[in-house]
Design a protein around this nucleic acid. Structure first.
Length: 513
RNA sequence: GGCGGGGUAGCUCAGUUGGUUAGAGCGCAGGACUCAUAAGCCUGAGGUCAGUGGUUCGAUCCCACUUCCCGCUACCA
């Protein structure tokens, strides 16, 4: 088994404030990173900011700020978000860093050396905000202003010398790669889109700009700046100290296990990035997963509709773990998902407070009243105890498999099933009626505590803080969390003091209007 | 226009390599209990599994057509 795991989020373009989509990508990536970590993998988890391009340059000019200082401020809001989201990222890369510049310029030279770059002329409609060229058919004229039909962003006519990447040359290799590596692109529906796009024919890609300066210079021509996507995508290897492919980080973690992205940037990751890597003779990442968007109710969030849910505000109001839990549970992975306060509140009350929180509370409280606050030492499992305990052991490899397929919904629903089961078990065994049968009472309490331990471990990647809080019952810390230990039924030390816990999740009082 | 995905209980979604009574959660209505955050447990309400036709002993799951939604792409596979 491959014990090294490298996962990335997109590097975020900081021209706007962090929104729910950023939070979602980051939280999902963190979920996988944390899971792999507690399942014994060496994990490298990268996120960061993409800071070059005309849009940033102009925004800085408008505010009369030095571009780099401007970027420092913007990047910080995303670094702060990583902290607010409690990400376990092992690195945070900025495209304005020196290590990245060296990496990009080196990749350029590799491409050049292999005859994948040539100079020519480009003319066409260019959108600064999209960093993309459009053909005549793709633009419309609104009140004398030209704009992209798709993105509605303003376009301007550009006519300049540009370097091109021979993307067309890689068409067949890409198709072959998709075919030979069926797991490379997922979900399946997105894969089909990519394949049909590539089959439609690839044009060479303009990979330099002369019209602005905020970017990484083309090594052999200082009048040109490297196209932002070639620049940005390279971050995934810059962070591993490329071009030093003998560097331990690179050797350990490349090719990446998963690039987690939003569906809007699929083409760059599924076509351009693999083509660049093929051309540079660098192995391709193992998996690219594009998730959907987070919608507000039925609609895409937009300022004009006033339906934006700011992740930071939500976290201030409800706490981080509820948001993490909600996004992972309620969004069907790969599809668009919607978020609303009502649903978030339902989720907190029913799943987190009533189901999980209350389970911990009732068992611990019972143990304090009836087992002098200790892990019972005199126990004898009956079939009904073993049945519920062994479920975890039976399913552990299935769970791992589902995670490798990035099926987070399966994972979280599995936990919810176990929670229902645990509450039912405690109910059915009626330990409060077993006060004259201490052996049985002890066994029920021990079994229940064991189930709580297993469930908390499984919850750790989803709601790390709350999981750790609950594991304090057993005096466990983050470093004690080990996924494979859910197989063990007698992990709790006999006679050890257990700790009382506070309410894990407060219920939300709902207005009845 | 082409390609792909999808239309399953009030809501959010599972599921069926075709086979007796189609599932979960939330919400709702009853019930028994009391360890617990008035939490948990049990029971129920019955959705023509988008529509029509076909294949089959039998289709929600296969095929065809229709319709609606979404994504990609665009006179080209």
């Amino acid at each position: 088994m491959d014990k090294n795991f490298y996962i990335t989020t997109p590097i975020y373009y900081p021209s706007a404030k962090p929104h729910m989509g950023h939070a979602y990508s980051s939280i999902l990536a963190d979920f996988f990173a944390r899971f792999k970590k507690i399942d014994g993998h060496n994990v490298h988890f990268l996120t960061g900011t993409d800071e070059h391009g005309l849009k940033i340059q102009r925004a800085a000019e408008n505010e009369g700020k030095d571009t780099l200082e401007f970027c420092n401020e913007l990047s910080k809001t995303f670094r702060d978000l990583s902290n607010i989201l409690n990400l376990s990222n092992t690195d945070f890369i900025r495209t304005t860093e020196k290590r990245h510049k060296i990496s990009v310029q080196n990749l350029w030279q590799e491409l050049k050396k292999n005859d994948d770059i040539y100079i020519s002329k480009y003319s066409g409609w260019y959108s600064v905000s999209d960093e993309a060229f459009y053909s005549d058919e793709e633009i419309e004229d609104i009140n004398g202003k030209k704009q992209s039909i798709i993105s509605k962003s303003a376009v301007e006519w550009m006519n300049e010398e540009s370097f091109f990447f021979r993307l067309s040359k890689w068409e067949k290799s890409l198709l072959k790669y998709y075919e030979d590596n069926p797991d490379f692109l997922s979900p399946e529906s997105r894969k089909n889109e990519v394949i049909s796009f590539v089959k439609g024919g690839l044009k060479d890609l303009s990979i330099s700009r002369k019209s602005f300066s905020w970017g990484i210079q083309v090594p052999e021509n200082k009048e040109h700046v490297i196209y932002v996507w070639l620049d940005a995508l390279t971050n995934y290897i810059s962070a591993l100290n490329y071009p030093d492919m003998k560097d331990s980080l690179f050797k350990k973690f490349w090719p990446a296990s998963v690039h987690l992205i939003g569906k809007d940037i699929l083409r760059f990751h599924a076509v351009y990035w693999p083509a660049f890597l093929l051309a540079a003779k660098i192995p391709l990442p193992k998996k690219i997963y594009s998730h959907g968007w987070i919608l507000s109710g039925e609609e895409k969030m937009s300022k004009s509709k006033g339906n934006i849910l700011d992740p930071i505000k939500i976290i201030k109001e409800y706490g981080l773990d509820p948001l993490r839990y909600y996004l992972i549970k309620e969004v069907s992975f790969g599809n668009d998902g919607s978020i609303s306060k009502e649903r978030l509140e339902d989720c907190i009350n029913s799943d987190l407070a009533n189901n999980f929180g209350n389970l911990c509370q009732r068992v611990v409280s019972f143990a304090f009243k009836n087992c002098s606050g200790e892990i019972p030492s005199q126990i004898k499992f009956l079939d009904e105890d073993l049945k519920i305990l062994e479920k975890f052991k039976t399913d552990i490899n299935l769970i791992r498999k589902k995670i490798d397929k990035l099926d987070v919904n399966y994972y979280i629903n599995y936990i919810v099933d176990r929670l229902f089961e645990a509450n039912k078990y405690f109910n059915d065994q009626e330990p409060w009626k077993k006060k004259d049968d201490i052996l049985r009472l002890n066994s029920i309490v021990y079994t229940s505590l064991e189930i709580i331990r297993k469930i908390c471990i499984m919850l750790f990647p989803i709601i790390p803080d709350s999981s750790i809080k609950a594991l304090k019952i057993f005096g466990m810390n983050e470093s004690d969390i080990n996924f494979s230990s859910i197989e063990d039924h007698m992990k709790l030390d006999f006679g050890k003091k257990i700790n009382q816990i506070n309410i894990l999740f407060k219920k939300i009082e709902k207005n009845n209007d």
